[in-house]
Nucleic acid binder design. Sequence first.
DNA 1: GTGCCAAATGATATCGGTCCCATATAAGGA
DNA 2: TCCTTATATGGGACCGATATCATTTGGCAC
Lengths: 360, 360
Amino acid sequence: MSRPPRETAAPAEPKPGRRASQRPTIRDVSRLAGVSRMTVSRVLSDPELVLPTTRDKVFKAVADLGYVPDKTAGSLSSRRTGFIALMLPTLTNANFAAVAHGLTEALREADYHLLIAYTDYDMAEEERQLRNLLARRPEAIVLTGAMHRRNASRMLMAADVPVVEIADLPSQPIEHAIGFSNYQVGRTAARYLLDRGFTRIGAIAASPEGEVTDHRGEERMRGFEEELRLARRPTDGVLRHGTAPVSFHHGAAAFRALVEQHPDIEAIFAVSDLSAVGAVMEAQRMNLRIPQDISIMGFGDFEIGREINPALTTIHVDFHALGLRTGKMLVDLLASDATPAPSTVDVGLRIVERASVRDR
Amino acid sequence: MSRPPRETAAPAEPKPGRRASQRPTIRDVSRLAGVSRMTVSRVLSDPELVLPTTRDKVFKAVADLGYVPDKTAGSLSSRRTGFIALMLPTLTNANFAAVAHGLTEALREADYHLLIAYTDYDMAEEERQLRNLLARRPEAIVLTGAMHRRNASRMLMAADVPVVEIADLPSQPIEHAIGFSNYQVGRTAARYLLDRGFTRIGAIAASPEGEVTDHRGEERMRGFEEELRLARRPTDGVLRHGTAPVSFHHGAAAFRALVEQHPDIEAIFAVSDLSAVGAVMEAQRMNLRIPQDISIMGFGDFEIGREINPALTTIHVDFHALGLRTGKMLVDLLASDATPAPSTVDVGLRIVERASVRDR
DNA sequence: GTGCCAAATGATATCGGTCCCATATAAGGA
DNA sequence: TCCTTATATGGGACCGATATCATTTGGCAC
C-alpha cells in the first residue's frame, strides 16, 4: 500500500469540497447576465425594480440556463416558506378532499403551497405528523378539529403561527375556527325526523372503540341522542356498529343489524351519506321500500346521494367553499402584519330534502 | 475562570439586524446542553454516534426548549429536502386519492414527505405547478401520465431527478413507469362484451373537446373502438357526452342520451365506474332492467359499484397498491446511489364479474 | 458647473442547519 | 513506553437565496 503523497503545495483546483451540483444557481445566472446576484433576485421577485434592459438580460440568462430558483434557500433567508400546513384524518373522503381542493385554489393565487398530512384517524400518528409539518416551518396551520392531545396543543402554541381549525367547530378553539357544529348536525337531524312525526327513530354510526375514532361522527351521534332525550324518545335505536371510517359497506351492514334488532324502526339517521347510501342499497336487497317502509337521511351531501333511487335526504355542508374561505382568510391574515383577534365562523348547515324520508 | 470556547461564548448583544425569531435554534439547544451544534445535530439524526450521557443532556435541552429542527435549513445544507413531488389531475377522485394514500404510507417510513400538486385536468396549470414543485427541490417526481408538453418535459430533464410516471403507461416513458395501459382497458372491456355475444355495443365517456381533457379516459375509448373495429362491429354506439371529469351525473345523462339515440343497444362500457353507477341509477329511473335489458360495465372498481343493485361488473386496478409500490420503488431507488436503468412495470388489470352484465 | 435627491445596482452578512476535517481522548498491540 | 487506531466531539466553511445598507449614476434646479 503506497503512502499518500507528502507534497505540501496543492494545485489550485476547483475545490471539490462538496459534490458540485449540476443545477444552475442564482450565481450562474448573475455571471451569465453580467449583473449581481441581488439584481437577479430582484428581477425574479419584483421586476419593476430593475431597468428593462437589465431585466431582459437576466430573463435571457434564466431561460438559457433553465434556471429554477431554489425555494429552500429562499425560504431560509427570507424566513417565509410559503407553506400552509393542512392536517386531515384522510384524503380518501370526498369532503376532506374537497376542503383540500378549495384551500389549494385560494392559496394558489397568493403563491402558497399546501403541505398535506393525514393521520388515518390515528391519534398517535397525529402528533408525529404535526411535528413533521412544523419542521417545515409552515406560515399557518389548518387542522380538522379534535386534535386536542396535550403535546399537540403545546407544540401548536410553541410554533407561534396562526392556527385555523376547520370543519368541526371546537368548543374551545385554539385560535381561529371555520366550520360547523357536528353536534348541531346531530340535533338538527333528530329534530327533522321528530318533526315529521316519527316515534321509533334510529341511527347508524361507527363504534368509538378501537384504534381509530371518528370524533366528528361521534359528535353528531351525541347531538342526535341528546335531541331524542330532550324529546323523551328512546335512544336504543342509535346503533354503533363496526369501525371507523365508515363506508358504503358499513352502512349496509349496520342497516341490516339495526333492522334486525329493531324491526319496528321508522326512520334512520346515518352518520354519513356513505353509510346512508349503503343502507338504501341494503334496503333494496332486503325488499324494504325507502321511504315507505323506512325513512333514511344522511350527512355530507355526497354526489352519489343525488343519484340513487330514491334520492337521499341529507344535511349539506359546502366543504369546497369551506376550504376556499379558509384559504382566503389565511391569505388576508398573512398579508397584514397585525395579529387579528381569534375568530370563529359558523358556516351553518342546510337540510336537503329529497325522497328518502317519507313525506306525510 | 478560563474563557469559554468561542462556540459557547455569550453573545455580546442581541444584534437586532433582522427581527429575532422566538423559536429556538440548534444553537440555543447546544448552549443549554453545553455541547457543540454538531453534537446536537448528531443526536437528532443518529443518536448512536454520541455517548449516552451527552445524548441525554441534549434530549433534555431539546425537550426543555420545545425545539423542533428546521428542515428548511437542514435541506439546504444537506442537499436532501426529503420531498417527493406528486402531480395529479385531481384529488377529488377516489382512485387518485388512493394513489396518494399508498404513496404516503410507503414514504412515511423512510421519512419522505409527499408534496402534492394538482392540475384540475388543466394543461396550462400543469406547467406552472411543475415549476412550483421543482422550486422545492424534490428528490423524485411522480406524475400521472400524459404530461408531455414540450416545456414540461424539458424542465423534467433539466431537474435531473428520478421521474416515475404512474397510472397510465405511456408509450414513451420519460424514465420509470408503473401502471397499466388505459388502451388495454378499453380493448379488454370490448373483448369481454364481444365474447358474451353482444352485437350492439356502446360506450359512454366525456368529450375530449373543451378546456379540460381526460386523456386517460380517452385512451380507454380509443382501445374500445379499436377492438370493436377489429371485430367488424359498428362503433357508432360510442358516445362522447359532456365534459371531463366524469361523475355520477355525467353517467346518468350520457346513458339517457345513448339509449335515446340507439334504443337497440345491448351493452355499454362506461369510461369510469362513476359514470357506470350513474347509468345504472338512470336505468332504474327509466324502468330499464340491468342487466336483462341492458348490460353495463365500468372501470375503476370504486366502492360504490360493489354496493349498488345490481352490483357493477368492472375492471379493477389496485390504485392503493400502485401508490404503495411506487413509494417502495422510490425509497429503494433513492437509497442506492447507483442510477438504475429505466424500468416499466405493468401492474395489469382484472375483470371483476358481478351482476350488471348479462350472463348468457 | 455644483449640489441634491431619487433610482438602479452592488457588497456583504445572514438564515439554521450539515459536511468535512481536525483534535482530544481512550483502547489495544508491539 | 510509544505508536497506531478507533471513538467522541468540536470548528469553520458552506448550502443558495434575501435583507440591509452602501455606492454609483442620472436628472434637474440654481
